[in-house]
Write a protein that binds this DNA or RNA. Structure first.
Lengths: 197, 197, 197, 197
DNA sequence: TATGAATGAGTGTTCATTCAT
DNA sequence: GATGAATGAACACTCATTCAT
């Protein structure tokens, strides 16, 4: 982070960049459109980021730390016995994923072009891996208490994670609360809870 | 009598286009690169498609019919009692989605930029709706036999569909067979079957 | 002239070419548009003319012979004493020039870009020179009869010729008969006749 | 504070554009050739003009105001009695038209393709109309003094104007002074003066 | 520091021309 | 002989990046 002048400006650029890149993709988005949205001149962008690629990478990677902290935070904010905690986490996760549509679209855009954005994809995978670690712990704990059973906890966690991405991709606009509830049920089922048989 | 425009060439262009567009996105992909991959001159592309936009739309929409026919076909190819059939369908679906990574990435790319590709997105939604119709029927039949229970069958089907897209997005390369199996288990769970409690 | 197959087709092409070239200029006009107007395929044009340049040159030069024969014919078709004949000629000339707007526009187009179409321009000048020869003879004859006086007969003829081109250029659509009459008066005045003092 | 867009550069582009367009026509002329002649990069042209069409229109229309001011100025610069003034005006006009060959060729090029450049043609007609207004006044004044007679003053003025364009079109290079003098005589005759019978 | 002017590299698209049938 | 498919050359226009102020 060059931190040349105003960190506020830097943030404005990054926010504008996330919006533009997620709506139009990398190549279609112009530096000018980002600058305009950030309320500055296009040339100023280059004072804060060395190139369009640099800005893109920072816009995608930058929020990752916060993003996964947030997810972990959701887990830690739960209360009750561990089964109840897991269920609460699922609810919070689904809500969170549907609310972060903009940024998630950007991440999904990058994931859809793995060869093109190899280096960024790898960085995100590494963040995700850490998060899956945390998730795995939680699920394992519930399992040890005998309340659910999953042969392959880690792989189950990846399924869960994929599901969250899948719903965010398919429904990033106009989701009903009924639909949201169903997503939560489905997510719980993936983790082995919530079956009402 | 002059030479005749070859349907084979048209197909080569479409195949090349799907590959390129899914790897690089719309704007980054050049007509030249598509032409090169199809083994023709870039100008020839314009003999078959009126513009880059036209080619893109046809590359995305074209396979939809086949794609959903295929999915419906998978359902019909199953045997046994209806629960077994549903389970078989899930297995075939997961396999199919992981194999169609290239094309699915393209569809997901379009979905990630709904404002930009509004018209295409709407067309795909309409295909998907039809497919969900079929899926709903199947699930309802199993349910009527009392073997599973889902309050919201249609919404459950959308969850199932989102999950398939989610795994295809997150893992479009190097998936282990263990992982594949877990995906199948998770998919079954979303539909309310496969819980081993 | 290759005279490959049908002279009728060749003529259709030339007629279409004159129309297109005079309306849109050389570069803007496409071989396809000419072919379409001539009711044939664009490739067929190349059976009759070796290149676009070739077709253009033939379309411009081709009618020159007929055009100046026609003008000379107008002179010879007059009757009465030589002053009356000159006046009749002027009337016929003005009518003729306003009627040949399409082709004249093409010639004027070429004249407006003398460097670009040097060779064609020179050929037209040589035709025009011959015509001015004829015109000069006529005017000189009237002058010898003492009915008009012009110091510089040849230069006066060029003025007359320039005037005809000038009105055709400025008014190639919607000319009133009043205007036509005034043109005739003006043309006569250039030649030294028609002054009503 | 950044550099400022220079009006000098804009003028250079316009001058280069007039030269190129008048020599090669609209389509044949490339933005690069204009830029080269103006001593700048082709991309810079688009900083000053939004498109090739825009540049063309401005190059054609731009000088119209100056052009007709100039013509009117010529009239006002004359001295002596009104007949002498008219004669002087004609001399100045002929000189002026032969000197403005470059720009006039461009105007004539546009006039030769009225359908293609309809909007520009209409704008020029409106300028010309104003100029003819002025000319008409002058001629009428001379006429009122009983020194010449023209039935249709306005139409005569259009003839005069057409003649000026005609000579400029036919002789935009290498005109002898003898020829120039004859042009002046012819122009005077159109207006009803200068007959030496 | 911040900006707008300037530009070179790049791309979609057109079109004259060639070629196979 | 006639045609439509195929193509390479060319061009308008865009945009990331640099530079002068």
């Amino acid at each position: 982070m060059p931190r040349v002048k105003s960190p506020e400006t830097e943030n404005n650029i990054l926010k504008a960049a996330i919006e533009c890149f997620s709506q139009e993709g990398f190549t279609k988005t112009t530096i000018s459109s980002i600058a305009k949205k950030a309320g500055i001149s296009h040339a100023t962008v280059f004072l804060y980021f060395s190139s369009k690629e640099d800005l893109f990478e920072k816009a995608v990677i930058g929020p990752q730390h916060w993003f996964y902290e947030k997810q972990v935070g959701l887990i830690q904010s739960t209360t009750g016995n561990s089964l109840e905690q897991l269920s609460q986490m699922v609810h919070l996760h689904v809500d969170f994923y549907m609310k972060q549509a903009d940024y998630l679209r950007l991440v999904q855009y990058v994931f859809g072009q793995k060869e093109r954005f190899r280096s960024i994809v790898n960085q995100i995978y590494s963040y995700t891996d850490q998060y899956i670690d945390v998730l795995e712990e939680v699920v394992k704990k519930v399992q040890e208490e005998g309340m659910i059973h999953n042969d392959q906890v880690r792989l189950t966690c990846w399924s869960y994670f994929s599901f969250l991405n899948g719903i965010s991709l398919t429904f990033n606009e106009n989701v009903s609360s009924e639909q949201m509830n169903q997503f939560k049920v489905s997510a719980e089922r993936i983790l082995g809870i919530g079956m009402r048989t």
